[in-house]
Amino acid sequence: MNINPSKDRKAIRLQFTVEGARFSFSPLPGGKWDNKRDRQLVAAIATKIENDILAGNFDLSLERYRHKLSAAQNPLPEKASSRICWLELWDAWVASLDLPISTAADHYACVRAMIVKSENPPLDNIEWLQVSKLAASTFNRRLSMLRSCLLWAIDEGLAKANPLKKIRSRLTTEQERQLSDGKKTPFSDLEIQKILSHIDRFYPTYAPFVQFLLFSGVRTGEAVGLTWENVDLEKRLIFVKQSISRERGGYKKIQKNPKTRDSIRTLRMSDRVFALFGSIITENACGLIFKSPKGQIIDHGNFRTQCWKPTLSALGIPYRKPYATRHTLLSQALESGLSVPQVAQIAGHRDGKMILQHYGHVINQSQLPE
């Protein structure tokens, strides 16, 4: 089901049918069709409705889908004032970026949550950031975002000084570096066999999903969002067009396009992927290919805690996130002799830079002379 916003004389309207019932409403008060951000926001609400219908969680009252005006839409003082606090400034800056809803729900939402948890301190208060117990990489990313926010505020005349100049980036500790490297370690062939065997025995509903992750190298959200309409068994092709992920810090599922335009890609099935689809396809198959034990959209958190973690723990395999299945396939592809551009195409990267950066050790492995 695709729900597309339509132009109305006074608003942007959504029209769709659920189980024979016709719905038509305007989710954004005062939304203008000529305003790009308003159209994007309504389109994001339409996506949420589509996801809820798929998951069987559709709100018949429509209240869940009516947008409430946020602090970002309220005007800030025209000139810098000590009365402006972090939350108002952050919301205004994020609104100015005109971000896709899925991007705004990622690290931007996490920074906002930090500010709210700190009870919205004034701009000259940076202690809430200094005492945060974040890994170096996460801290540095959020510090960079906050610096950009303040530079924008100074340019707009909303702030006079940048108190973040006093904060330095954090250095990655050896423990963090080892932990990060360990999470990216590909699974060995023996580990893969053990994982597949264990999940097939104890978590059979998730077995095809895990097989596909290990055999295809797609992102977890791309596997979750894959539909039968995007698979051509006759030509043995997979069309990766969307990804479904969970909002950080919440339980909303966000449907979005893959990370880059080039990521909307076509993959040719290997024999084992073709055999996998052949074993699970049913007559008149449609909609999502992989579902939870309750027949709904796979929830990343539930899959990780109910199936993935227990499996690795039971097998004595050092924990890696489900994303490590992607590292495993891409490493195998390089080891098998595929070129960097070919592997980049499989991964959905614009070019081979990311492949060389993350998998150069695989490509450049030295071999002792005969």
Rank of each mutant, 00 (worst) to 15 (best):
I195R: 00
D200Q: 14
D200N: 14
D200I: 03
R201Q: 15
F202A: 06
Y203W: 13
P204C: 10
T205K: 15
Y206A: 13
Y206C: 06
A207M: 06
F209G: 02
F209M: 07
V210F: 02
Q211S: 11
Q211I: 00
F212Q: 07
L213S: 07
S216V: 05
V218R: 00
V218K: 00
R219M: 07
A223T: 13
V224Q: 03
G225Q: 08
L226V: 07
N230P: 01
N230A: 08
V231P: 02
D232S: 14
L233V: 08
E234Y: 14
E234R: 11
K235L: 13
K235Y: 13
R236I: 06
R236K: 15
L237N: 09
F239I: 01
V240I: 15
V240Y: 01
Q242G: 04
I244C: 09
R246C: 10
E247R: 13
R248H: 09
R248M: 04
G250C: 02
Y251V: 10
K252E: 12
Q255K: 15
K256E: 07
N257W: 05
P258M: 09
T260W: 04
T260R: 03
R261K: 10
D262F: 06
S263F: 05
I264Q: 14
R268T: 14
M269F: 04
S270D: 11
D271N: 10
